[in-house]
Amino acid sequence: MSLTTNDQNSADEVAIQITDMNKWYGDFHVLKGIDLTVKRGEKIVVCGPSGSGKSTMIRCINDLEKHQSGKIEVLGTILDRNPKNIQAIRKDVGMCFQHFNLFPHMTVLENCMLAPTLVQGTSDSKAKETALKYLDKVKIRNQADKYPGQLSGGQQQRVAIARSLCMNPSVMLFDEPTSALDPEVIAEVLDVMVSLADMGMTMICVTHEMGFARKVADRVIFMDAGEIIEDDEPNAFFDNPKSDRTKLFLSQVLEH
């Protein structure tokens, strides 16, 4: 379903529209009036110091965190407290986590087949076919019968990406997908993400990989203290940042 809509609609169509979103943890104001529009096929990289609210923001998009005021519209569905709408959005939005969150009691293949069979009612054989296709795409098909505990971090993150892809999502969210990885395996995960971007997937990535941002992103967003400070295309963002906070952050990140 998502693939067909993807083909029919023009590139200008809005995938995600966030308007004046606020969120509090108790009395702590985490997200302060966020406005963000993401078009179909756009790749957004979100960066910023830790605690700036960037993870919280993308976790609000598929309702892992509840926003308390403002409006979020994903692929034409308004995110409210109605479980049906939440479910509809989650089916169409895939997510990869910092700690992979693979299900340790299932094999790689079972991890990939679980959601399609339970949520979409796909038959076992069809789900297996899809799962193997995407495992092939992330170059890990030969490990399909292993358990997550037997794989390296990089392999696990690639499985997690394949697991999300099996649901045929229209949007992929990445929440610091490489922060928990050893330096030598970061590249293999980034390669998979680049190939996803080349396929035209709508992506929002929270990451500190500035090389990836420069290479892939259509826009780079800098957040600090719960606000979007800067929103620009990569070349302008890196070479000519407008805000002082961005400059400071970039000098700290790019120093080494």
């Binding site: 606020n22 104001h29 009036g33 005021s69």
Partner: peptide, 8 residues
């Protein structure tokens, strides 16, 4: 704007 409290 910044001083608003979360809606109860």
């Amino acid at each position: 704007m910044e001083q608003t409290k979360p809606p109860s």
